[in-house]
């Protein structure tokens, strides 16, 4: 069973479509294990997870999933290089303390990396901040500023810049609409940065 929110469920299915059958997958910030459960059942993947919350880990292990309680900011260094076909960071990068280090670690651990995140450049976000002068709350970012776990929000343009700084190669990029539908991101992406509520990036490590 995938995530409860229909839009998020669609996004997880889009991510799952990028993963070939029988892949070795590490889902960082796996929550209650919806994606790895789906990948295990539907794709025969060898899928593992890391999750910060005890409730999420307990739910995963009770379902028979291989998940460890851990922190993306500190625990990724323990994994050997290239030990997974895919390292996935779904709706988590904006909640890490050092997103750039986390991305570096993912590119080290996984042969391919999938990152999805909410786009702070989405027109509704921009409009709410511009018109109300208050921190914007939208469907994808429904937290008061003082309660949000999202401490490092970024726009699609910001993320593209980060991939260029870190040695990641963008293999594929999808813009996610409010409905959860996706379309290929079109370069240079100014339009998508305004109209997409989120994005999904498939990355590999650039040969140095």
């Amino acid at each position: 069973m995938l995530a409860k929110s229909p839009a998020l469920r669609k996004e997880l299915l889009r991510i799952a479509e990028m993963v070939p059958a029988s892949s070795r997958v590490l889902d960082v910030g796996c929550g209650a294990g919806e994606l790895i459960e789906h990948l295990t059942r539907a794709k025969g993947a060898d899928a593992r997870g890391i999750e910060l919350s005890q409730a999420g880990v307990n739910a995963c292990v009770a379902k028979g999933l291989s998940v460890i309680q851990g922190d993306a900011d500190t625990d990724l260094a323990e994994y050997p290089a290239q030990s997974f076909d895919f390292a996935i960071l779904s709706q988590t990068i904006q909640a890490t303390h050092r997103p750039r280090d986390v991305l570096d670690q993912l590119l080290r651990i996984g042969r391919r990396v999938i990152v999805s995140f909410p786009n702070f450049g989405f027109w509704k976000v921009r409009l709410k901040l511009a018109l109300t002068g208050r921190m914007p709350r939208t469907g994808a970012l429904d937290y008061a500023w003082h309660e949000t776990p999202n401490i490092h929000l970024c726009t699609i343009a910001d993320f593209v810049a980060l991939t260029q700084e870190t040695g990641a190669r963008v293999e594929r990029a999808l813009a996610v609409e409010e409905s959860g539908e996706v379309r290929e991101l079109s370069a240079p992406g100014y339009w998508d940065n305004l109209t997409a509520e989120g994005a999904i990036f498939l990355l590999t490590r650039r040969a140095s």
């Binding site: 060898d46 593992r48 005890q54 880990v57 307990n58 995963c60 292990v61 999933l65 291989s66 998940v67 460890i68 309680q69 851990g70 625990d75 323990e78 994994y79 050997p80 030990s83």
Partner: peptide, 15 residues
């Protein structure tokens, strides 16, 4: 857990 991860073993961990 870290040692098992480093060894590529299949591990779950709960506190």
């Amino acid at each position: 857990v870290h040692a098992l991860n480093a060894a590529g073993a299949n591990v779950s961990f709960v506190e």
